[in-house]
């Protein structure tokens, strides 16, 4: 079995899962009731996407190893940091609302282009998951774009908070478009999405009266399992229950 394909599917799943987990941290703490529900809705959409990808990855792993040990749960809850292939951007802390909506905007703009391309993938399962998820992501992109504009072109304070968020997150956006080996082998060259992504960011930032950052050093590593210190804490919280009470059900 093609192990790069399994890596690729896990990469897609990990991105969605870690973003879902981060957004879920807002549950019960959103700035207003309506936005609390909005951000957790997005979290659930992403969780659903990750489940689809994990189920497919588990199926491929079991077929290749002639076992039935891999499940969506074992992939999500029983792997350690180095096995996770999500991008740096997904694991960055929520910070304030500005940082959360900006992270979502950067990520959704990327996911939108990614899924649009993947819905024509030769692997029918990946194509089907991407096509289904694209509708959700279209809404995430719309929602997060509007928030970036609202805060960027809002009050002096909201504008300043967006600037701080851009400073914090911009360095993690380059990695999205630097393909890992498994992406080139089993997916496609994601660097081809970079121009469209950048143009979308420029368009939204212009409306938001926000400056587009200069070229800067871009952090990389997440896709190959080298993570920032944040991922360990995320996994510790997310995996605690399954590791403490194996196979717990409720």
């Amino acid at each position: 079995m093609n192990s790069s394909l399994i890596d690729y599917i896990q990469h897609l799943a990990d991105n969605a899962l870690i973003m879902a987990q981060r957004n879920a941290e807002w549950c019960g703490h959103g700035p207003v009731l309506e936005q609390d529900i909005a951000i957790t809705n997005i979290s659930l959409d992403l969780l659903g996407q990750s489940r689809n990808f994990y189920q497919y990855a588990a199926q491929l792993i079991n077929e290749s190893e002639k076992s039935d040990e891999a499940t969506e749960d074992s992939l999500a809850y029983l792997r350690t940091e180095r096995a996770f292939k999500n991008c740096f951007l997904a694991e960055q802390p929520n910070g304030d609302w500005a940082q959360t909506v900006l992270r979502q905007f950067f990520f959704s703009a990327y996911q939108f282009l990614l899924y649009k391309k993947l819905q024509d993938n030769t692997d029918e399962q990946i194509a089907a998951i991407a096509a289904k998820a694209l509708k959700e992501v279209t809404y995430h992109l719309r929602w997060s774009s509007e928030w970036v504009i609202r805060l960027g072109d809002g009050t002096e304070e909201s504008h300043q908070r967006m600037l701080t968020a851009i400073d914090e997150l911009w360095q993690y956006t380059g990695e999205l478009f630097m393909p890992a080996a498994y992406e080139l082998e089993s997916g496609f060259d994601v660097s081809s999405l970079k121009d469209d992504w950048f143009n979308k960011v420029v368009a939204v930032f212009e409306e938001a009266t926000l400056p587009v950052p200069e070229k800067c050093f871009m952090q990389t590593g997440g896709k190959t399992g080298i993570h920032t210190e944040h991922l360990g804490f995320i996994l510790a919280e997310m995996q605690y229950l399954q590791r403490t009470y194996p196979n717990a059900e409720w």
Binding site: E25, G28, L33, G95, W97, T155
Partner: peptide, 29 residues
Amino acid sequence: YYYGDIPEDNAGGSESKESKVSPATGGGG
């Protein structure tokens, strides 16, 4: 206190103390 405006440092969803939204500076209230 409006919804989500939890006083002190109990406001979760964030590791930053900056994230609190107070009625004075905006928020859904």
